[in-house]
């Protein structure tokens, strides 16, 4: 299961289309729309009260600019969560600001990818992310 942290409906739609090109359906993706909801997910609270904390997502796709709690703060929270700290996190954002790139890596992301305006390129980059992190990469074993 992929956790997609994305507040923009259009970007969600485009992301689903891009994932579909890699045979990943919407049911394989859990969408959280802001930082507060992401924290609820991490803490198995609110609408995620029933979530099994021992089943972390296989990949987190994180936008940096999201409402309530920033993507950078979420990165810190996720990395300090015992059961989530080894989950691969790919920051997918529009920002090409060097400060953001550095801060994201410092906060513990595994990869930083800029969302291209050109949808064809966007689909290609999402495909590369999926190929690499879900197929080529060896994830850390459950501890």
């Amino acid at each position: 299961m992929i956790l997609l942290v994305e507040d923009n409906d259009n970007d969600q739609f485009l992301m689903f289309r891009a994932l579909r090109a890699r045979n990943i359906s919407e049911s394989d993706v859990l969408v959280v729309r802001d930082g507060a909801e992401t924290l609820e997910y991490l803490r198995c609270a609110g609408r995620f009260a029933e979530r099994d904390p021992n089943l972390p997502p296989s990949l987190i796709l994180l936008d940096l600019k999201i409402p309530k709690v920033s993507g950078l703060e979420l990165l810190h929270c996720i990395r300090s969560d015992q059961r989530m700290r080894l989950v691969p996190i790919v920051v997918l954002t529009t920002s090409t600001q060097q400060e953001d790139v550095v801060a994201a890596y410092e906060a513990g992301c595994n990869s930083y990818v800029c969302k291209a305006v050109d949808f064809t390129k966007f689909v290609e980059s999402v495909g590369t992310i999926i190929d690499y992190w879900l197929h080529l990469n060896t994830p850390a074993p459950d501890l």
């Binding site: 259009n10 970007d11 485009l14 529009t94 969302k115 949808f119 966007f122």
Partner: peptide, 18 residues
Amino acid sequence: VSHDLRAPLRAIDGFSQA
């Protein structure tokens, strides 16, 4: 500009392609 202007452009391009 980096964050907010590119997002709608990506939507214009993406939805056109859709």
